[in-house]
Amino acid sequence: MRTAMSKRKKIIIKLCMYLGYLLIAAIFIGPIVFLFVSSLKPYVQIESDMSNIRAFIPYGDLSLDNYINVIVKADFFKFFKNSVVVTIIFVLLATTINAMIGYALGMLNFRGKAIIISTIVALSIIPTESIIINRFMTVNSLGMLNTYIGLAIPSVAYPMYMYLYYNHFKGMPKELQEAAIIDGASYWKIFTKIMMPLSKPIITTVAIMAFIRSWSDLLWPTLVTRDGTYRTLPLALKSLFSDTYTDWGQVFAFSTLMVIPTMILFLVFQKQFVASVTSSGIKG
């Protein structure tokens, strides 16, 4: 009798939990559904659907017209290619270079460590927008204007990522390293063969943050690209907003195309990201 009661109670609690999960999910995913659905509708219908639940339902005058316009007229894939290249360069460099300094700060002893750490914290306060003109002059004198490297490299040394890595490596067991040193391994080997493989969750976290940052960067590319060759997606999206007329259907289609690669990538890596974050691996 008692077990039956508590079983029923458990089921009810479970149901309530699921209901809660679903409600919260609606808040998070609703606006994204609205984006995807609207990208299939003509502008007039987007407006008239705004007042009710139809805004979230694919119905009515659906077509791929917006997408065709965006791909053919707005030349989506040219910008897409540029964004992909810049983002790959940025993510690769940002995940490794910041990991290196994070490892040194977190696991090695050396003079000046404290200064570097507090400098990192201080530097993280500086908004990129505030130094962008001077950064432009620096990149110009290095001859890196209008190149992929010029687009990617200035933000690679990113204080927040350094701090994240530092925090992570600080928490790693020192015994692993000490054992490896006794075995005669070099620090580089320890870093690449032991520490990095054990840091997949944090690497994935930084990689995703870096990806989003680079993928959505709006201001820097307006300065550093000097012709159409290297312009990235956010710039092309901004061009769709004109003073005289904005076709929201096209804006939504372009946005959807911009968001989907990120979503796919995230889904592919979510095992790394979410699952290994939650599985208790090395946390000791």
Binding site: A25, I29, I32, L35, I212, W215, S216, M258, V259, M263
Partner: peptide, 14 residues
């Protein structure tokens, strides 16, 4: 968890 995280992949402009 995935769904709750998903807005993060939408760029701020969008």
């Amino acid at each position: 968890r995935l769904i709750y995280f998903s807005p993060q992949v939408v760029t701020m402009t969008v």
